[in-house]
């Protein structure tokens, strides 16, 4: 038996919004420690890794590990029908063929039950290697969204160059070019508005704009985002979710020909 209850539907809505455009279907791997999901796009350029820790749930029970193959669009559509403050309980029998969803209003005067058919999803969990990153940039997630969106009007690649002085996002396209530099915040009243740049080695890497734009749509998950860059390893973009876990996106760089 698997059962997981979140006190507020809002967090699940945000999580599904952030991954469902990149992930059509995936396996929710449920174990005693929580729920995880990994999904790569068909060209193996990007990967989404989601972790929802058991302690982030109001109630959590998973007697034996199970994989729930889910169409993320279908799940997203159903979860969207819940009120933001509704409690949501996900459940599945050990050898069941559906994922059950129960929404309970805060007044407990409305209870909705849905079932989503499970599917066979051919995807195995990868052991994501621990990477050595040369640079870690923490910045407001809304700023990252703005920068990727603004540069996407010009070019299909964004070069991210980072030194101790700042991080530069630049692009070139048929119509021209553009670049935006963010400096490390000198004094910050609000942690979440800070730009913090940690540099072991300066680095410049180029990435496909369209994926960065997709990732940056997760801004609702956290006011801050971290970009981790290293030579020979994928970019890792992380949106932490307090005690709940994280959504991480991995993106292979563009390589010089």
């Amino acid at each position: 038996m698997f059962e997981a209850r979140v006190a507020q539907a809002e967090i699940l809505k945000k999580i599904l919004d952030s991954v469902r455009e990149l992930v059509e279907q995936g396996n929710l791997d449920c174990s005693g420690t929580g729920i995880s999901l990994q999904a790569m796009d068909s060209s193996h350029v990007s990967l989404v890794a989601l972790l929802l820790k058991s302690e982030g749930f109001e109630r959590y029970r998973c007697d034996r590990s199970i994989n729930l193959g889910i169409n993320m669009q279908s799940l997203g559509k159903i979860v969207k029908t819940a009120g933001n403050h509704d409690a949501i309980t996900l459940s599945s029998e050990d050898k069941g063929d559906v994922l059950g969803l129960m929404f309970e209003s805060t007044e407990q005067d409305k209870v909705s039950n849905y079932e989503i058919k499970l599917m066979d999803v051919d995807a195995e969990q990868l052991a994501i290697p621990v990477a050595e990153y040369s640079v870690c940039v923490r910045m407001p997630s809304a700023e990252f969204a703005r920068i990727t969106r603004d540069l996407s009007t010009i070019g299909d690649s964004v070069l991210i160059s980072c030194t101790k002085d700042g991080v530069q996002f630049s692009t070139t396209g048929d119509t021209g070019s553009g670049s935006i530099v963010l400096r490390q915040s000198s004094s910050v009243d609000d942690e979440k508005k800070a730009v913090v740049i940690e540099v072991q080695e300066p680095i410049s890497l180029s990435f496909a704009t369209k994926f960065l734009v997709q990732f940056s749509k997760s801004a609702a998950l956290n006011e801050s985002v971290t970009l981790n860059l290293g030579d020979g390893v994928p970019l890792m973009v992380e949106y932490p979710m307090k005690e709940m876990g994280y959504v991480r996106f991995y993106l292979a760089p563009k390589l010089s020909n």
Partner: peptide
């Protein structure tokens, strides 16, 4: 000129 890399080598996928 650049070409898009992939994640295969990072994850040891052949």
């Amino acid at each position: 000129k650049t070409k898009q890399g992939n994640l295969n080598s990072f994850f040891g996928i052949k």
